[in-house]
Design a protein around this nucleic acid. Structure first.
Lengths: 234, 234
DNA sequence: CCAAAAGTGTTCATTCTACACCCATGG
DNA sequence: CCATGGGTGTAGAATGAACACTTTTGG
């Protein structure tokens, strides 16, 4: 995109206008995944400087003709093949010295899905890719721990809220207890089973299926799925 | 900030790395102000292209060595003289064609204060400055209406939440009814006076003063101030 | 029959809501 | 005395927390 000289626009800055246009912009994604009772985030081992070989959130510079959301979706698809996933912006992180490559502002994104569907594939620019349990998240490159903390806070708020977005983490069919266990895992606290069931069913986001668990050595639980429409209305 | 050549970092992009570093980054502030029962936001009439002469949120490109928060504070101080005001990030707005000057990503900021203290002063780059009632916000330049909508939603959530941040809007000493009227104005709905008082006082954010209204032709109301410490703890 | 998890019911305390009513001041 | 807003009390409904209990399956 060619720019006209600063005088045209009437700007009067104390440094040349060009120096304002030297920022890089990146997105970094906190991708939560759930499988068999545990919640993970997707981390990469960096294959490029700076912080080469260190663990980091998956992220990338966005292209000159790309907006942030498309950038975030691109990363998600490249690494996981996932499309049409719940995604939300976390905010911008902009400390002057956060990136050694130059002045780079990053915007965090938050995504959720269950892990049953896919095998993440490392791209050329990534040395290693791994789902890491929430309790095991190591020190990360850049300010990525800040971004992660932000995302975890948001996830917890969602799980506690009237609009339990956390369903996105579960497989299509799930039991109420499976959902409860996931919530307890993320919140790090025990909740009352009976009250949890009642509140959840009263909220009317779930549709009971004519299906039950199989091959369990106890009374099989009823399976539910999400009523996407009701969830969206809230 | 000088950058090393792309090869040094091991990046392999399909376009030269320099093209990633041509973004401008700006902040735009939604500054809420309260006076005598009404809530306003501060708007400027632009003195530079693009959108010259149109109404817009006050904002500016951030400097190469400045982070977003400092940029937002700078704008607030330049236009209003206000320092140490409650501020919060709203998120990034990044549509590719949102700015004709070049590729500019903007980050919205949210601030609140009461208007009794100060007279905003237009800077050289601003043709006109005005406090506009919430109900009268016109069409704005760029995507500024989106940013404003976002901010208003946030303000409403705050006023409804357990942590009523809206105190920032009020003068140092205020009556409960004054606060109620402000909340009703912003939410656009009537609330029950008795229940509002009870909930507010139970939340324990307010300190009653040994002072009452003067020269009113009805029973004078007790004045309160905010217990900043309690508010911070929540 | 037992173990284990599914699922229900009941009680009590707390909070919310609606609304009636009394109080203090200026004029 | 009245008008005006300030300020309180209460009853009933709704919600939430704690916990005991019943049900259904596999083995």
């Amino acid at each position: 995109m060619k720019r006209k000289p600063a005088e045209y626009y009437g700007y009067k800055y104390d440094i040349p206008l060009d120096e304002f246009f030297q920022f890089g912009v990146s997105v970094d994604c906190v991708i939560f995944g759930y499988k068999e009772g545990k919640v993970y985030i997707l981390l990469i081992r960096r294959g490029a400087k700076p912080y080469e070989d260190q663990w980091a959130l998956p992220g990338d510079l966005i292209y000159p003709k790309e907006n942030l959301e498309d950038g975030a979706k691109r990363i998600l698809i490249e690494l996981t093949g996932l499309q049409d996933v719940f995604m939300e912006q976390l905010g911008a992180f902009s400390e002057v010295d956060r990136h050694t490559l130059g002045r780079v502002i990053t915007v965090g994104y938050f995504a959720m899905n269950h892990l049953d569907k896919f095998n993440p594939k490392a791209q050329s620019w990534v040395k290693e890719l791994s789902w890491v349990e929430l309790t095991e998240v190591p020190q990360l490159a850049f300010d990525h721990n800040d971004i992660y903390d932000n995302a975890l806070r948001k996830l917890r708020n969602y799980l506690k809220s009237d609009k339990p977005i956390g369903f996105e983490l579960l497989p299509e069919k799930f039991t109420l207890l499976e959902y409860l266990n996931m919530v307890e895992y993320v919140l790090g606290e025990k909740l009352d089973k009976a009250n949890f069931r009642k509140r959840l069913l009263a909220a009317d986001f779930l549709v009971p299926l004519n299906e039950r668990q199989k091959n369990v050595n106890h009374r099989p639980a009823k399976l539910y799925k999400v009523n996407q429409i009701k969830l969206f209305e809230k």
